[in-house]
């Protein structure tokens, strides 16, 4: 079963599991490609964050590496003018809707956006874009954790683990367009939803949108 293919990323020859995604292969080999929504084990990649662009020789234009399967002798570049511009733009778009409240944020210093900013050498600022900040109510009804939709980057990992892994079917995407947010099916408070309290969602949340309650931090 252990079929390996040989690929070349930024001049570096690496071995990758046949059938795996280009993003996973890069990450396994310590090659950084920004990403927010990719989660190993999803039956199909969410492909929503649009941060993981790379260029593959032979393909016209950038592709998302989470949706591209490795192929033998693939030649990949993680940087090009188009890739860099798209990644920066996607990053700035996400930052433009994200409140920069690191000081009080439960994810401070374990935040995917902070890490990305460091890797990309970009400030936590939306470039030339204006800020469009949401103002949603925080759900702290649950004894174990808090959902703050204002901090959410809509990567969808929590929805996936809640529905597909835990099977609780508590969290889902609500509304469309810029109003899209994470919440419970009928808009019920989490405490009254089908949430099992497994906290898988909190564990996969890359930012501070889902966090353990203060008294739970040690226990967790």
């Amino acid at each position: 079963m252990n079929n390996k293919v040989k690929i070349n990323i930024d001049g570096k020859e690496i071995q990758a599991e046949a059938g795996s995604s280009l993003l996973q292969a890069a990450l396994d080999n310590d090659i950084y490609i920004p990403h927010l929504c990719y989660l190993d084990g999803m039956k199909e990649p969410h492909a929503g964050c649009r941060l993981c662009f790379v260029e593959v020789k032979g393909l016209p234009g950038p592709v998302t590496s989470c949706t591209t399967k490795v192929e033998d002798n693939m030649v990949v570049r993680t940087h090009s003018p188009d890739v860099d511009r798209l990644v920066k733009h996607a990053y700035e778009l996400i930052i433009s809707t994200h409140p920069i409240v690191c000081k009080t944020c439960p994810a401070n210093r374990s935040c995917a956006l902070q890490d990305m900013a460091k890797e990309l050498r970009l400030p936590l600022k939306p470039g030339k874009l204006n800020k469009i900040l949401p103002d949603y109510p925080i759900d702290d009804s649950h004894p174990l954790f808090i959902l703050d939709p204002n901090l959410c980057v809509l990567c969808g990992k929590c929805v996936f683990v809640c529905n597909e892994v835990e099977g609780a079917r508590a969290l889902e995407f609500l509304f469309r367009g810029i109003s899209m947010r994470i919440g419970t099916a009928a808009g019920l408070p989490l405490a009254e939803s089908t949430c099992t309290g497994c906290l898988k969602c909190v564990d996969v949340c890359p930012v501070g949108a889902l966090s353990r309650k203060a008294n739970q931090v040690q226990a967790g």
Binding site: H46, R50, L93, I132, R176, G177, I178, M180
Partner: peptide, 21 residues
């Protein structure tokens, strides 16, 4: 399009909103 965007991806969800603004 902004109203009808499914909201899944960054460019469509947020990008169309900035363009509309």
């Amino acid at each position: 399009t902004q109203k009808e965007s499914c909201g899944k991806c960054t460019f469509c969800r947020i990008g169309t909103k900035h363009m509309l603004d």
